[in-house]
């Protein structure tokens, strides 16, 4: 089942709205306040730039994923801190997940950073959006699969969220054999290479669980988040 899900990783388009929103988090310009409205030509030019970068990202990205299910009695080693325990409490199994867009996209980003920083910036945002969508898509398909078995998937939780230490990254990748399976590795400082990658833990529960972490409490950026400052949330599109 898991292999099958991982073999069907495709990206066909990116959510331009989200890319535009993440442009620099200064969204006053888009929300039509005061006299800060940028002229429509400008937005059109930007959208064209996003379109071109999207094409480039879709061309260079090769989304790959690996999943592994751990029975409850084997999850002890991946637990650390309060939040992950809360996520997995009452769960019969945990799903480990890793998704990457591969090294060719990384190389493309490096070239663009030398030749055209403006495009590099937009390309980088598009790539981030792409890996987010790849992970969302995999999660969604997994959720459907689990539902068929009349079980429920919790939401996705990654090292670095809440009090789940980023140092767990190495263990998750080891468990997933991610280097061999999808070419995903870590630096000694626990950063993933290729950079456009996501790891996460999800629980499988016999009962539906409320979305514990679909808010800002887990986010390291909450104190300086421009969205929050405006009363918006990045996860509400």
């Amino acid at each position: 089942m898991l292999e099958e899900l991982c073999q069907n990783m495709v990206l066909t388009s990116l959510d331009h709205g989200k890319i535009l929103r993440s442009m620099d988090a200064r969204l006053g310009a888009l929300s039509g306040e005061e006299d800060t409205q940028p002229d429509p030509d400008l937005i059109a030019a930007l959208q064209e730039q996003i379109r071109q970068c999207e094409t480039e990202v879709l061309k260079c990205a090769s989304p790959r994923a690996v999943l592994r299910i751990l029975p409850a009695e084997e999850i002890q080693p991946i637990l650390s801190g309060h939040d992950i325990c809360r996520l997995l409490s009452g769960c019969t199994e945990a799903v480990l997940m890793a998704v990457t867009l591969g090294s060719e996209l990384e190389k493309r980003l490096m070239i663009e950073e030398v030749t055209n920083m403006s495009n590099a910036y937009v390309l980088d945002l598009c790539a981030s959006q792409a890996v987010e969508q790849a992970a969302d898509d995999l999660e969604q398909r997994l959720r459907v699969q689990i539902l068929r078995e009349e079980k429920y998937l919790t939401n996705r939780f990654s090292p670095g969220y809440g009090d789940y230490p980023i140092q767990m990254q190495g263990l998750l990748l080891d468990y997933l054999n991610a280097g061999r399976a999808i070419g995903l590795t870590l630096t000694p400082t626990n950063l993933m290479v290729p950079r456009k990658s996501i790891t996460a833990v999800l629980g499988i529960s016999p009962e539906p669980k409320p979305d514990l972490y679909g808010n800002c409490t887990h986010c390291p950026l909450q104190t300086k988040c421009a969205w929050r400052a405006r009363g918006e949330r990045c996860y509400q599109s």
Binding site: M23, D24, R26, G28, A29, T36, Q37, P38, D39, L42, A45, L46, Q49, M117, S118, N119, Y121, V122
Partner: peptide
């Protein structure tokens, strides 16, 4: 003044 986006500043 938020009349420009970062890509245009870089351009």
């Amino acid at each position: 003044k938020q009349q420009l986006f970062l890509p245009q500043l870089i351009n």
